[in-house]
């Protein structure tokens, strides 16, 4: 392996194909991720509510949904959504990009629903009991007592889900939907400089995921420590100066 030529090849590729990587690839990857996680979160919330439903049949059906989606590889789900569903629903004339976005949404919804459910169930049972004994209804307890506390567990986990999905969108490149990994496939297909393309794509993924994961862990700390946000000047300064809290 000759590292000197790899360096110059990377420069050459970037000067010639930077648009393919950064404008087309990165924007499509981010778009897919944002669609998958935001709609996935909405759907996931619905799934989580149904999972905690009073009716046994609904709980059973939802757990099948979650188990099937979490128990099969995402690549397989992509194949089904891109090839099988359009044949079953021929009146829906959607692009591969839309189908993969839907598949990622559904996939994300199963994971996110578990995030919601565990976030809600992690709130101490005593909170519910106390709220109910003070005369709040079940709905009020959920809205005013449980959810505000559950959010603390849920939001950082959602951030992690975003990072996970961001990386999983790479599998959508099987259908050349234009994401970063598709850029890798097309550029290496035209130039046969595979390793160099991989390095470039890897750097771009890292440039996005690293700040994001830092942001999530900062957020996680803040959520775990509600006092963090209050006007505690001493503490704020200590944090800004890099001291431990």
């Amino acid at each position: 392996m000759n590292f000197a030529t790899i360096g110059s090849n990377i420069v050459k590729l970037l000067s010639q194909y930077w648009k393919v990587f950064l404008i087309e690839g990165l924007s499509n990857t981010l778009l897919l991720t944002v669609i998958a996680v935001s709609l996935g979160a909405l759907l996931g919330a619905l799934v989580a509510i149904l999972k905690m439903s009073r009716f046994k049949v609904i709980r059973f059906l939802i757990s099948i949904y979650i188990e099937v989606i979490r128990g099969t590889p995402i690549l397989l789900q992509l194949y089904i959504f891109v090839f099988a569903l359009p044949s079953l629903l021929p009146f829906l004339n959607l692009s591969y990009f839309t189908w993969t976005a839907i598949a990622l949404c559904i996939n994300s919804s199963a994971y996110v629903s578990e995030v919601f459910r565990s976030g809600i169930q992690a709130v101490d049972k005593g909170q519910t009991e106390a709220a109910r004994s003070l005369g709040l209804s079940a709905g009020q307890t959920m809205r005013k007592i449980i959810l505000p506390q559950a959010i603390r567990n849920i939001l950082p986990a959602l951030g992690n889900e975003f990072i996970m999905i961001l990386k999983e969108t790479s599998l959508a490149s099987t259908f050349f939907v234009g994401d970063l990994m598709t850029s890798y496939l097309t550029v290496k297909g035209a130039t046969y400089l595979g390793f160099e393309c991989l390095i470039i794509v890897g750097m771009i993924y890292l440039c996005v995921t690293f700040p994001l994961s830092k942001l999530v862990s900062w957020f996680e700390k803040k959520m775990a420590n509600p006092n963090y946000k209050k006007h505690d000047h001493k503490r704020k300064r200590a944090v800004m100066e890099g001291g431990k809290v």
Binding site: Q16, Y17, F176, T186, V187, G189, A190
Partner: peptide, 12 residues
């Protein structure tokens, strides 16, 4: 599968 020059590939 457009990753196979010169048979089929992408003109960026």
């Amino acid at each position: 599968s457009p990753d196979f020059a010169p048979m089929e590939f992408v003109d960026a």
